[in-house]
Amino acid sequence: MMTELSLNILDVAGNSVRAKASLIEISVIIDRQKDTLTIQISDNGCGMDDEQLKRASDPFFTTRTVRNVGLGLPFMKQAAEGTGGSFEIDSEPGKGTIVTAVFGLSHIDRMPLGDMTETIYVLITANPDIDFIYTYKLDEACFSLDTRELRNILGDVPLNTGEVASFLKDYLQENQSYVSGSYIV
């Protein structure tokens, strides 16, 4: 069991890393009118065939060889469905995978979003060869970060070194708080 949704996101994005994705898009979209919080993680990794896809949210299915259970997607599915939301996976071999989880925003069982800055920061700095697009949207306010854009500026200075990493953390934190204002997700 995860204690915050940002940990589920970190976990499920790990599947994209294992699927050899070169680009991973993560979005968190909060719509107070519709009372939903939508998390979408999409990648251009190896994708899954129909058989794997059917079993992907079965806790007793995993492609790993080191253990017999796979709880990443089931945790997220349970967390979403427990709030009156929905959970969906689309995948195509060779093309990639899209995981979409919709949560009831004000539902009492919805876990807090938690520290998205940490999650995105960890993903970017620990996977220096993968590009990430992160979008955080609260109603009409929106913040987006694309590591390809950062790399264009940086040239051959790596994203996970020294000052760049500290910049990244502050940049994520400040923009996220700016979009959120006083609203606590």
Partner: peptide
């Protein structure tokens, strides 16, 4: 650092 479901949880 191990960052699978088990590690993260």
């Amino acid at each position: 650092v191990g960052m699978a479901t088990c590690g993260i949880a």
